[in-house]
């Protein structure tokens, strides 16, 4: 049942799929609700796996008493219906799924990434505001650029421009400090 997001009262069919803001019958707030067939779809019930009928049947790696239904696409272990996780058109066992998430091999399971290019550029720029911290920050930025050049950045399309800019700014800062200390020594 679809409810108004303000007054929480159920919305009538007249308000749904109008494709333009329509007043909510209860609170009269203009609301547009686009509903899709998934709303009426029943949730699939969990599968428990079929018990083994004879000795000649292959059994699940994790449940030896259950009949194997499919092989894991990653490790090849036989899995029963309970252990089979269908993900991205592949059949995976829970262990491979966990490993894939931990090692970032399954992109669609990642829910957080650190973008080192943005971090490097931010450090390079913010330290410039206070001048003196650049003595420390410039080598750190250079290290980050070199070390994380090949590391995965954001999940969305992105160029290496931030890394290039951070590298350029940090290099200039180092050159500036060399010139400053050089002039002090000469003086």
């Amino acid at each position: 049942m679809i409810s108004c997001t303000r007054c929480k009262s159920p919305l009538d069919a007249q308000v749904l799929n109008t494709f333009a803001p329509t007043p909510c019958p209860a609170c009269e707030e203009p609301i547009r609700a686009d509903v899709y067939p998934a709303l009426f779809r029943k949730l699939p019930s969990g599968r428990s796996g079929v018990p083994l009928q004879g000795e000649e049947e292959a059994s699940c790696f994790y449940h030896p008493a259950k009949k194997a239904a499919v092989a894991c696409s990653a490790c090849g272990r036989f899995l029963c219906a309970l252990c089979d996780v269908e993900f991205n058109d592949r059949h995976l066992c829970p262990a491979c799924l966990e490993k894939g998430k931990a090692k970032r091999k399954i992109k669609n399971l990642e829910n957080r990434r650190v973008c080192y290019d943005t971090v490097a550029l931010s450090i390079a720029l913010i330290s410039m505001l206070f001048v003196w911290p650049t003595i420390l920050s410039a080598p750190i930025v250079l290290f980050m650029v070199i070390h994380y050049w090949g590391a995965p950045s954001s999940i969305i399309p992105r160029s290496k421009i931030r890394f290039v800019l951070a590298f350029g700014i940090a290099s200039l800062q180092i050159v500036g400090w060399i010139l400053f200390f050089g002039s002090l020594i000469i003086a």
């Binding site: 803001p21 203009p30 547009r32 899709y36």
Partner: peptide, 8 residues
Amino acid sequence: IQAIITRK
């Protein structure tokens, strides 16, 4: 996705 609802 079951629905997308926007409210002014």
